[in-house]
Design a protein around this nucleic acid. Structure first.
Length: 347
DNA sequence: AAAACGTGGCC
DNA sequence: TGGCCAAGTTT
């Protein structure tokens, strides 16, 4: 049956299907455009250098979970210099990883990286697993990180889906301002459809889409004028409709999380274990008052700038006894702190 | 499966 | 100024 004008229109709709099923020609053009753009505009990040190691890629991916690149860079360099191989990290106490984590946030990531290094050293002869499945079994490695390391460290064809990629797909293909609040099965299917069949191209595509989301197709005020695929963007074609929901932020002030963070800052800064009694006496219910001067107790005798600052910050929270108790219990349960003989310290 | 989990910069 | 946001994982 000869194709009529009507059937041709149905076969080639103006807007791409939201599941990403564009025709092969469109897809190929998309792949080529982003490949070129990435080649010209990609940032020079150390974990993309030729001398990178799979371990370095894993460390970068974990550090980058919910943490901006600029903050990760110096810490990643420090880690690589100090612990160039998983076994190097595994040879040290977990607390060293937590301390070297600095202020990246979510310090249990440091704990899990140390645990992963221990597994790699003990069960994998010091080498990272080179499959998604093997990587996924490591502590702190979820679906995103497993796919990312498989692709970027081992050159595998993996469906990488992070927050940047989700946003780019939502706009470019889905015609929506933002992806759903949480990852859906439909998004995974769409990402799989969009992934180039060619292995090497798939690696570049993953990196390119992620980079586009980070540099151009940003959450707030996207730079569409600089976008290499703006002409193919379903969101623009639809007139850039606003988000259909408003993301709700995380509570912070007055939360246990805030107290945990302040306690961890003290433990990181402290050269010696900190007495539990000190936390209770100096930091509970004393908002508005002054913390004891460094040197007023033997615990503070050697309090330098960083420790003093951390203590001052915790003091300023005016944490109540119940909340301090809860926060400490949480830290101990998570293994981020250890209590022995009335003292608290990093593990 | 919703909720917990740090931190700092930006508009 | 305060809410939003950043290469998520775990329970």
């Amino acid at each position: 049956m000869p194709a009529t004008a009507a059937t041709r229109r149905r076969a080639q709709p103006e807007a791409p299907a939201p599941d990403g099923a564009r025709d092969p020609e469109q897809l190929r053009a998309l792949h080529a455009a982003l490949e070129d753009w990435f080649g010209a505009e990609a940032r020079d990040l150390p974990w993309r250098e030729h001398d990178r190691t799979p371990w370095g890629v894993l460390v970068s991916e974990v550090m980058l979970q919910q943490t901006p690149v600029v903050r990760v860079l110096p810490v990643w360099r420090e880690w690589m210099a100090r612990w160039p191989r998983p076994a190097d990290l595994a040879a040290e106490p977990a607390g060293e990883a937590v301390r070297a984590w600095g202020r990246l946030g979510y310090p249990r990531r440091a704990l899990r990286l140390h645990a992963a290094a221990t597994v790699i050293a003990a069960e994998h002869d010091g080498e990272l697993p080179d499959t998604e499945e093997g990587l996924l079994a490591l502590p702190g490695v979820g679906t995103y990180t497993a796919a990312a390391v498989a692709a970027f460290a081992f050159g595998r064809r993996a469906t990488v889906v992070d927050t940047n990629i989700r946003r780019v797909h939502a706009r470019l293909v889905g015609g929506e301002a933002l992806p759903a609040p949480s990852l859906t099965a439909a998004e995974l299917r769409r990402a799989a459809i969009l992934l180039p069949a060619d292995r090497e191209r798939s690696v570049v595509w993953n990196a390119a889409v992620m980079e586009l989301g980070a540099l151009v197709c940003t959450a707030r005020s996207p730079r569409c004028a600089e976008c290499p695929v703006a002409g193919a963007c379903a969101w623009r074609a639809a007139g850039e409709p606003p988000p259909t929901y408003t993301p709700r932020g995380q509570a912070w002030h007055g939360t246990d999380r805030q107290v945990r963070g302040a306690v961890m800052a003290v433990l990181r800064a402290a050269e010696q274990p900190v007495t539990r009694e000190l936390l209770d006496r100096e930091m509970v219910g004393s908002a508005g008052s002054e913390p004891s001067a460094p040197g007023s107790t033997h615990h503070f005798a050697e309090a330098g700038g960083p420790l003093r600052d951390a203590i001052t910050r915790l003091h300023a929270l005016g944490t109540g006894p119940d909340q301090l108790e809860r926060a400490l219990a949480g830290l101990l349960a998570d293994g981020l702190a250890v209590e022995a003989e009335g003292h608290l310290r990093l593990p």
